[in-house]
Design a protein around this nucleic acid. Structure first.
Length: 595
RNA sequence: GGUCCCGUGGUGAAGUUGGAGUUCACGCCGCCCUGUCAAGGCGGAGGUCGCGGGUUCGAGUCCCGUCGGGACCGCCA
């Protein structure tokens, strides 16, 4: 055993080397490894091979078949590194040229057979079983790799932020409830029964206060909690790089965040991504039909309103906006050849999203259009449509005529449904979506506009004069970062002027008194000299998943929850002792009656 | 709250028109085996077909409900 002084970083009091780091250059030396028995191959009374695994990988040990060690037993093995005999080298292993012989085996712990194989075959095992035995799942190479990528990303982000003089400040987990936005997790107060803390949806309020406080540049790799339904890219708990800067414009923020994202990608992939391009929200909607465009593939929306400006076809003549997408028969032969059933399913999908209908046309020989509605169009309209869309024989054209937003959203969804590759497939396409609208839609109960991002976003300076006269046309200094069609995060320049904040609140239907009541602790500080500031937050789980080649963030989280929010390993959430509830002043309602 | 898919020894699958808990691979246990590397050979154990109800002479299979898991819509300022 080495002494404390002369050890390599990976050696410990119990081992000299990691399994997979032994090489032909170590031949002749006596080494000690520790790990789990990955596999045992028996070859008669006095010969067996053990594959011993630690996080680095495996090494083969030659032992007497009499030794009693089995799958997943924890062993310490001291042996001599020797070259493998001619013809027995395994090129698939980093340690394939050598093996350990004359082994002394110490069983550190026996083990029951695992419920699933601790290797790539467990990729096919029911995820519920993997989560129930997550500590075994994580022994596998895939999870080891993913969690180490995650660590690298966090480290690279910290490095990039520190290099830009951002200061890491931790913010509270227990805070007042602010019911706007996502549903919060509540924590009952013991000392004030009937009162509750909320867990942070994000550190948004705190980081703006830190700007008032003169921190200048704040960051935190922060845990955020939202009690909303889970998805492949959403967990109750998730991590964000949260950042805020003083005395900046949008471009300063984008540049600072870009450095962190680029550093993370570099650390994982070993190559620098190209400069992140920008697209306005309106262009994104017009070209891709979504505010998180996947720009890895084409099939962009084509503007057709002018083509049908004087059409007699009623569904088109009454529509504010007509657009189409072209399913290229060369690139997407299967989709372009969809039969009636599939086309009906697409129509249902379009209606589900809010369209009145979906017009499909199949392009045939001589660029003739085969469609239930073709007969309602003039020859000139058909020809103009074909040329506008660049249609070729065999293509499928999908058209929607509706309000602008509906037309875009429906075609954008169909475009993704028909042609979007898995999120982790390269090439990685990062894009900043800028100039989001300040308000989106109308609150059903108040009839007032709703904030597009959050109520503290600075309106675009060119649009401020229309804040009262035409609020829905006002852009915000708000921006999203999108990677391969996944929203990584969003940010904005914030309002730092109390008067401007009041004007925006009024548009949202929040009176000055309401604002004081709901946001008082947050607005009060802004009277004491708030610097112009802005910031951003992006989800690191999503970034790690994509960089790790995973389609689901559960694969890059050590102990995630299932879609219903439970943990098969701990069984959380669980009922609690009535005494605990009493102490908190909480009485449970009877379970809802089942109808 | 909604739509769709899945649930069969420890794991993954197959199971026909409704006809005996049947089959395959891996794992597990035992025996054999001196150069394998997802070793190989022989033998064996292992099941409330998620659960409950219904139809039927008979249900893994059909119907209803329910639980669990997954994908999506709503939701996620």
């Amino acid at each position: 055993m080495p002494t404390q002084q002369n050890r390599s970083i990976e050696s410990t009091s119990l081992r000299t080397h990691l399994c997979a780091n032994l090489r032909a250059s170590d031949v002749g030396s006596t080494v000690t490894v520790c790990g789990w028995v990955a596999r045992r191959r028996e070859h008669g009374e006095h010969l067996a091979f053990l594959d011993v695994r630690d996080y680095s990988g495996i090494v083969q040990c030659v032992v007497d078949n009499a030794v009693d060690v089995r799958s997943e037993w924890v062993v310490q093995i001291t042996g001599k590194v020797q070259p493998r005999p001619d013809g027995t080298v395994n090129k698939n292993l980093s340690t394939g040229e050598i093996e350990l012989s004359d082994c002394t085996i110490t069983v550190l712990n026996a083990a029951e057979p695992p419920p699933f194989p601790i290797d790539a075959r467990a990729d096919d095992v029911d995820e519920n079983v993997r989560l129930k035995y997550r500590y075994l799942d994580i022994r596998r190479e895939r999870m080891q790799r993913n969690l180490r990528i995650r660590s690298k990303v966090n480290s690279a982000i910290r490095g990039a932020m520190e290099a830009q003089q951002f200061v890491e400040v931790e913010t509270p987990f227990l805070m007042p409830s602010t019911p706007e936005g996502a549903r919060e997790f509540l924590v009952p107060s013991r000392k004030e029964p009937g009162s509750f803390y909320a867990l942070p949806q994000s550190p948004q309020l705190w980081k703006q206060l830190l700007m008032v406080a003169g921190i200048d540049r704040y960051y935190q790799i922060a845990r955020c909690l939202r009690d909303e339904d889970l998805r492949a890219d959403r967990q109750y708990e998730f991590m964000q790089l949260d950042a805020e800067m003083s005395f900046v414009t949008k471009d300063d923020v984008l540049a600072a965040i870009s450095k962190a994202v680029v550093a993370a990608a570099e650390a994982v992939l070993g190559e620098t991504p190209p400069t992140i391009e920008q697209i306005t929200w309106r262009d994104a909607m017009n070209r891709f039909g979504v505010d998180k465009p996947d720009m890895r593939f084409g099939m962009e929306l084509v503007e057709l309103t002018a083509v049908f400006s004087s059409t007699e076809f009623k569904a088109f003549s009454s529509a504010a906006c007509i657009k189409g997408i072209r399913v290229d028969a060369t690139l997407y032969p299967e989709q372009a050849a969809y039969g009636r059933n599939k086309l009906d399913a697409l129509t249902d999908r379009a209606k589900q999203i809010g369209a009145k209908g979906l017009v499909w046309m199949k392009v045939g020989e001589g660029l003739a259009l085969d469609s239930p509605v073709a007969k309602f169009l003039s020859d000139a309209e058909r020809a103009s449509l074909v040329s506008s869309m660049g249609a070729q024989n065999g293509d499928l054209l999908l058209l929607v005529a509706d309000e602008w937003a509906t037309t875009c959203e429906v075609l954008g969804t169909l475009r993704n449904d028909l042609a979007r590759p898995p999120v982790h497939e390269g090439p990685y396409k990062y894009v900043w979506v800028i100039d989001f609208p300040l308000f989106v839609g109308v609150n059903a109960t108040t009839g007032k506009p709703q904030p597009g991002h959050h109520p503290f976003c600075q309106p675009h300076p060119d649009d401020i004069e229309r804040l009262e006269s035409d609020p829905m046309s006002v852009r915000a200094l708000a921006y999203d970062l999108v990677l391969n069609g996944w929203e990584l995060g969003s940010g904005s320049i914030r309002i730092h002027d109390p008067e401007m904040q009041r004007r925006v609140f009024r548009q949202l239907g929040i009176s000055d008194e309401d604002a004081d009541k709901r946001f008082g602790f947050f607005l009060q500080p802004f009277k004491y000299g708030a610097p112009p500031h802005g910031g951003f937050a992006f989800g690191t789980d999503r970034l790690v998943a994509i960089l790790a080649g995973e389609e689901n963030i559960r694969e890059v989280i050590a102990f995630p929850k299932t879609q219903s929010g439970s943990d098969p390993m701990t069984n959380a959430p669980t009922p609690v002792n009535p005494a605990q509830l009493n102490e908190l002043g909480i009485r449970l309602l009877p379970p809802p009656a089942k109808s």
